[in-house]
């Protein structure tokens, strides 16, 4: 493979947002490693992409099992060229389920923050050695402020966002880049039965926004863009009022 080859590791590749993003980087000729837990499904997606003309491979990734990390990095390293990663993992058990069983917090934080952070921590030296590459980290507007409805998930995503900020600070020095993405409501399996959603974006629209952010080396993007303003307002509600609200 030539030095110009772009490899994209897609963590959480079974999600519809990840699938849409993977198809877009594939259209630009990247080698794609589809990483996740459901290998049957990933193999289907990889075959689908191969039939459309992409070098796509299914690889095992479990945010809660660090032993799955090294083989993925080794495979990306073996392809050669520039290594990039996009993180779409995360889990959001209903807050009342967590209230009932606080141990669910551990898994939520592992899936949404510490698992992917640990993976990226091992990836960083490979990117630094190449002096290039982009990490796309999908956070959530839920991480911008703790709300009664999903503050454990929000806290995990907030932690991940802070981690990404630091990673950006580090990788910038060697020519790498990190894009933090905060999607609003996206029409995915995770939000299928969530009530009260508005201005819902399609996974394809979000993937297009991600592609543009990668090309333009954006630091933090909200998608769709107007969520920046919605969250600006929400972040500025004084705490003494916010604590009584249920939004």
């Amino acid at each position: 493979m030539s030095e110009m080859t772009q490899t994209w590791i897609i963590l959480g590749a079974t999600s519809s947002m990840a699938r849409a993003f993977a198809r877009k980087v594939a259209d630009q000729g990247a080698v794609v490693l589809l990483a996740g837990r459901d290998m049957d499904d990933l193999k289907r997606s990889a075959e689908d992409m191969r039939l459309r003309g992409t070098d796509a491979r299914a690889v095992k990734f479990d945010a809660r099992d660090a032993e799955t990390f090294a083989p993925i990095l080794a495979e990306a390293d073996a392809v050669g060229g520039v290594i990039n990663a996009a993180v779409f993992v995360g889990s959001m058990p209903p807050q009342d389920a967590i209230d009932e069983d606080p141990s669910l917090i551990d898994g939520t934080v592992m899936d949404s923050f510490t698992g992917p952070a640990r993976f990226l921590q091992s990836l960083a030296p490979l990117m630094e050695a190449r002096g290039a590459g982009t990490v796309v980290g999908v956070g959530s507007v839920a991480g911008d402020r703790g709300r009664i409805g999903n503050y454990v998930y929000g806290a995990a995503k907030a932690g991940f966002a802070t981690y990404l900020s630091g990673l950006r600070n580090r990788l910038t020095r060697s020519g790498g880049h990190v894009v933090t993405v905060k999607p609003g409501f996206v029409d995915t399996a995770m939000t299928w039965d969530v009530e009260g959603m508005f201005l819902v974006a399609s996974p394809d629209k979000v993937a297009s926004d991600l592609m543009r952010a990668v090309e333009k080396k954006k630091n933090v993007i909200y998608t769709p863009f107007f969520w920046r303003y919605i969250m600006l307002i929400i972040r500025h509600i004084p705490e003494f009022i916010f604590k009584k609200m249920s939004i």
Partner: peptide, 9 residues
């Protein structure tokens, strides 16, 4: 309505 995204689902 359900809208599965994977064969298993």
């Amino acid at each position: 309505l359900a809208r599965p995204e994977r064969a298993r689902a």
